[in-house]
């Protein structure tokens, strides 16, 4: 399987995701933001970080970068496109995904382990995954998902909600919402489920010596689904 990780100036999880993808059997290429063409890819990832310093609005400058037109074309033709953290913010800024990511509720950067419930497994990302609650890691300042009532209704009707903050047993409750996200949303799909945006970082959870191993579960499963 071929993956491509887009590198923007200010991306800082690009290396981490590349390592994770390679570890679980993807071939991976790093694509510079000023490139125009995407190489042939089965998966494209927009990594975490602070693209262009996140100075205007998180992800906003990246959504106007040179490479992004090819990324949009790739996604519109059904290609698998995953945005993690800043990548998720870029996906909403390009309108490939609905809604926005606002400043965290308590106006604080939050770096910690969280539990997320997988809300929909009928897609290439989570089909056949062995757990329905994952222990993943978040590290962000703007992860407070928000969208209009209409958008939310549409997402619910289309089963576009991917991940919800919850406790270790999978109970979704405001108590377990780290950042104030609407309905505890931690990740969403596009209508066709080929685009996934999520705040948690599975690439930081790929060894027992790190914060945990549920990221491994995610990548192994993803690769198997694509084979």
């Amino acid at each position: 399987m071929n993956s491509s990780v887009i590198v923007f100036p200010g991306s800082n999880c690009d290396r981490d995701i590349a390592i994770a993808l390679r570890k679980f059997g993807f071939k991976n290429k790093m694509i510079w933001h000023e490139d125009v063409e995407l190489p042939k890819s089965d998966l494209v990832v927009l990594p975490g970080g602070f693209s262009y310093g996140d100075y205007l609005r998180c992800g906003s400058m990246a959504s106007k970068s040179k490479i992004i037109q090819s990324v949009i074309k790739f996604a519109n033709s059904g290609g698998l496109l995953m945005g993690i953290c800043n990548g998720f913010q870029i996906l909403t800024e390009t309108s490939l995904l609905p809604g926005v990511l606002l400043r965290n509720k308590f106006s604080k950067f939050i770096c910690k382990n969280v539990f997320v419930k997988i809300n929909n497994i009928e897609n290439n990302y989570f089909k056949n995954i062995k757990k329905n609650v994952l222990n993943l890691h978040i590290a962000h300042n703007e992860g407070n998902y928000f969208c209009s009532g209409e958008q939310m209704k549409e997402m619910q009707e289309n089963n576009q909600i991917a991940l919800l903050y919850c406790d270790e047993k999978g109970e979704v409750n405001e108590k377990y919402n780290p950042n104030g996200s609407s309905k505890n949303i931690a990740g969403i799909f596009s209508r066709k489920k080929n685009i996934l945006g999520m705040m948690p970082h599975p690439e930081r959870m790929i060894e027992k010596y790190l914060s945990g191993e549920d990221g491994s579960l995610f990548f192994e499963n993803l690769l198997n689904n694509l084979k």
Binding site: R15, F109, H137, E203, I206
Partner: peptide, 25 residues
């Protein structure tokens, strides 16, 4: 305090803040 610092980026932090020492591979 330390939850506001990204302590896991780079994927090699094997002992987080709050212990006797932080450890990175």
């Amino acid at each position: 305090i330390w939850e506001q610092y990204d302590h896991t980026v780079m994927g090699d932090t094997i002992q987080k803040p709050g212990g006797d020492a932080g450890v990175v591979r």
